[in-house]
Amino acid sequence: MSRIFVGLFTVLCWMMSIGVQAQKPLRLKPVNQFHLSIPEPSDLCLTPDGAHFYVVSDNGLLFETDLNGAITRQSTFSAYDLEGCYADADNVYVVDERTRKVHLLDHKNLQKHHTYEVPYMASRNRGYESLCFNPAKSSFLLISEKDPSTIFECDASWRVQNETDFKGLSDISAATYYDGKLYLLSDEAHQLWEVDATTYSPTRKFELGIINPEGVAFDKSGNLYVISDDRAILYHFGPLPSPTNP
């Protein structure tokens, strides 16, 4: 009988260690870094012209910066805890994690003109942590951080059309779409996962090696940028290695 329990224990340990052996992430190194004068920056996205970033903060503020992180504009609009942002030709979209509200702002004056409420009954800091648009599904994505990390697909009126629990990462702190793929960032694992934009199954994993990564974006040349919340630093990683020639 005791041998059975020893065997069970061994199998248990082996199963828990499987996660480590599978698909080791590729380590990326930043080529440059820029200190931000923004308190607790929590996400960034590229402006439609590709010349600037929008950056949101845990303090509910929205900034526009150049690609080196220098502030060029600040919105007078303020919310409570902005955790995700996305911009298209029409609007800047920001999500407030505390109130579960998506605010739409005008590019010209950065003033809010619409608000949508997307209820989610979790604790204050377990709300929507990421926002982006997924062209593969013609949906806006809102993603809860953890416990569980759920990808909500929303229509243009921010009604939830579908939801998918994402397994594998301990948390999702930001998301962005680039070149046919969806990229999910994990604060706790310090990793960036490239996933299929339709099935959400992982295709590649990258180890970033920075503290508290909370925001991710690509510029028009394919350079990867990641924001560290705790350190208020914008890291520039350069383009991702080609899948066929890492």
């Binding site: 069970l8 579960r100 979790a122 204050r124």
Partner: peptide
Amino acid sequence: IHCCFFTRDLQAQISINAGRNN
């Protein structure tokens, strides 16, 4: 062993918003 495999998603999380109150 049962707990290790079957209790991972047990949660009960609540926050309530009312105007500026949370």
